[in-house]
Design a binder for these strands. Structure first.
Lengths: 271, 271
DNA sequence: CGCCTATTTGATCTGATTCAAACAATGTGG
DNA sequence: CCACATTGTTTGAATCAGATCAAATAGGCG
């Protein structure tokens, strides 16, 4: 079974067999750690020497305000490297917390650097991933700033289901959603009470079924409309339709990649 | 007079004389364009072949919602390269709009790539800059999600003044703020009317003076407290106290920088 | 001046918060 | 296996921050 990370990166850029092996090896040889819900995977302000790759569970990026309020800025799912950011900037300006029990592979910065240097295309894929991360932030911001509670929740459910499907953790219209309503509230800037009421509303309209930790979307079109969800921000244009995902890439697919900070990104366009 | 860009990048990482010259040359030889307020500098979904460096004026990143609402996601000031993002990902997932008359230098992707390849440290500085951009987004999000209107506005005023000071466009406690209240509203997820009332409140409390396009902060401590503003997110730790900014760097300051996507960032720590 | 765009003010309405408490589920130890 | 504790969900009522609607001023500027 291919790792979630591999699966995700292949969606960003076609990989050769050697690159795949390198990625598999990376995760395979890494030390793993387990975290309890509410435990910090990386505390705010830390200067980690390893990157945390989520293998299993739900985590989140968050910041705390002086008055104790928490703002969750994104959910981190299996296959996400949560603190690639600190690999480059040194310090993490926000915390990474486990929302459910989490299994995490610790990838030493050194190892990661070796792999990236030997396989620049992997480095490129990782970088693209961080940029997509930024796009997710922006979309999140719009939600918080301009959408109604109903819209925000609908949009978030769409996003999570879509991302889980991308790593093979969801059926076409259902997935595990093992997070609490108060986590949802902290992510969307809403109170628990209100989250609860809106969820009931969405259930009442027959858009979703949400019982225990299982989310079923009964009316995808309706939910998409309620949240004005457009998944394109999750899939950058270059490989929007990765027709070849899964199969081995042909040599012609492997355009040379300019070294030195990957500034050749602009030359990477698909015709 | 050093360009704003140079000034900003020197705050991120010490630069050698050659690197400075390269940067100056970059902007000096570039074609410039002018934009009227409300005009798009880069429309959403564009695939630009040049990067836009703001030389003068206020611009913003924004997205439009289906119902015509606008969410501004950050202000772009002189010295900011607004679409470095597209240089790497190809397509821009949001628009860049002028808020005031803007003068913009157009830096061809090719030229930028050459400079970055010849001067990897410049590339590194640019990359760090995009990561800081991300940090600004996160801070913005907290504001929108968890702060009161009062807190949001105070925080924003602190941020803008701080950033303008960093490029030499502000006095210690005052700056030009040539944007409309409705722009502020779109940035903070508030209605114009409410922005207006809160501004009056802040004026009434003697925290600020805001007349015409001139912002004066009468009580910085008070404003900082009202917005829970902590500028550290604008200045990454490595060079938080750039004691040597402005002077020429000593050779010892110039640590080697690993090529290939700059994954050597982790090795760049200051002792 | 007259037009257009910003700011300001007033009145009203509502989505969402807060507080409080009941209820359900899950887990823990005796 | 039950009693108890803990954490999450649900419900109700009161309140408020901020939106909306409407209209009056105040600046710029050709």
């Amino acid at each position: 079974m291919p790792s979630k990370l591999l699966r995700k990166l292949e969606g960003l850029i076609p990989l050769s067999e050697a690159e795949r092996r390198a990625l598999e090896g990376l995760a395979a040889h890494a030390r793993t750690r387990s975290f309890r819900p509410r435990e910090d995977i990386v505390p705010e302000g830390d200067r980690p020497t390893e990157c945390s790759l989520i293998l299993d569970g739900f985590a989140c990026r968050y910041k705390l305000l002086a008055d104790g309020k928490r703002q969750i800025m994104s959910f981190q799912l299996a296959g996400d490297i949560t603190d690639l950011h600190a690999f480059l900037l040194g310090e993490l300006d926000h915390g990474i917390g486990a929302l459910t029990p989490c299994k995490v592979a610790m990838l030493p910065h050194d190892t990661l650097q070796e792999v990236a240097q030997e396989h620049p295309r992997i480095a490129q894929a990782l970088w693209r991933d961080t940029l997509i991360d930024g796009a997710v932030f922006r979309e999140w911001m719009i939600g918080i700033g301009r959408r109604s509670a109903r819209g925000r929740i609908a949009h978030l459910l769409c996003e999570v289901l879509t991302r889980l499907k991308a790593v093979g953790l969801a059926e076409e219209l259902s997935c595990e959603l093992p997070i609490t309503q108060s986590d949802l509230g902290d992510a969307l800037g809403l109170s628990v009470v209100h989250v609860n009421r809106v969820l009931q509303e969405l259930r009442g309209e027959g858009l979703i079924t949400l019982r225990g930790k299982l989310l079923v979307v009964n009316d995808w079109t309706g939910l998409e409309a309620a949240g004005q969800f457009d998944p394109s921000y999750l899939f950058p244009p270059t490989v929007r339709r990765a027709s070849g995902a899964g199969r081995d890439v042909r040599h012609a697919d492997l355009r040379p990649f300019a070294p030195s900070l990957g500034v050749g990104g602009a030359a990477e366009r698909q015709p």
